[in-house]
Amino acid sequence: MDQDALRVDGLFLSRSGRTVLSGVSFALAPGSFCGLIGVNGSGKTTLIRALLGLLPADAGGIEGAARGHRALGYVPQKIDADPYMPLRARDVVALGFDGHRYGLPLPSRRRRDRVAAMLAAVGADAFADRRLGDLSGGQQQRIFIAHALVREPQLLLLDEPLANLDMPSIAGIVSVLKRIARESGVTVLISSHDVNPLVGALDRVIYLAGGGAVSGRPDEVLRSGVLSRLYGHHIDVLRVHGRLVIVPAGETHPIAPDEPHVERLE
């Protein structure tokens, strides 16, 4: 029995001939709520695709209890739901339960109950019978989370689920995910280009930059010295009105000493 839900060791990944990640290592404890943070193009989607088994690694390994598609739930970056496609929210969740199976879906009490339970868990009861394409972005995101969770995976991977959502929806999604991680013991790995909506909720941060990664508790990782070493040049981590701002200070600056470098400018 693996202790970690997932362990990544010295992982090298490339996409269309270009190396995206070189030597990334981290581990995720079961039931933890983890953020995969990095700017656009830092390799978040590439890493998630590799964890899903859709992209072979050039070198290094991915191990742990949460391996294979049965143990993984996935919420892709962008699903362009067609408002003309006849598919209720409930049907989308049911497709998460047995959409990979061939043959007609025979009526099943087990499926119906699981789907109803998942819809309730993500707070989607009110719009469960509406057409997916008619729902708002935040509502659709809840449905896709239910779709990913309905087969009871050990690890839930979400690719930028908060992009293009308004602030109340973001807060709602984060609290749903946090609760799921705490109550059902699912490990949640959520990627985001902005750490702020997540920082209060995260147990762990994996910060991607320049092909490498640092991981640890948010207060360990989101520091000027740690990020400066990752980027290879000076990085300021500022706290402005309660928000973290991560500022590259230009490559000419020397790398800062590893001091508590979270400055307060309030």
Partner: peptide
């Protein structure tokens, strides 16, 4: 079911 799922999202 596979056709419905892949129509909804090839990624899923």
């Amino acid at each position: 079911r596979p056709l419905l799922l892949s129509t909804l999202s090839p990624d899923l």
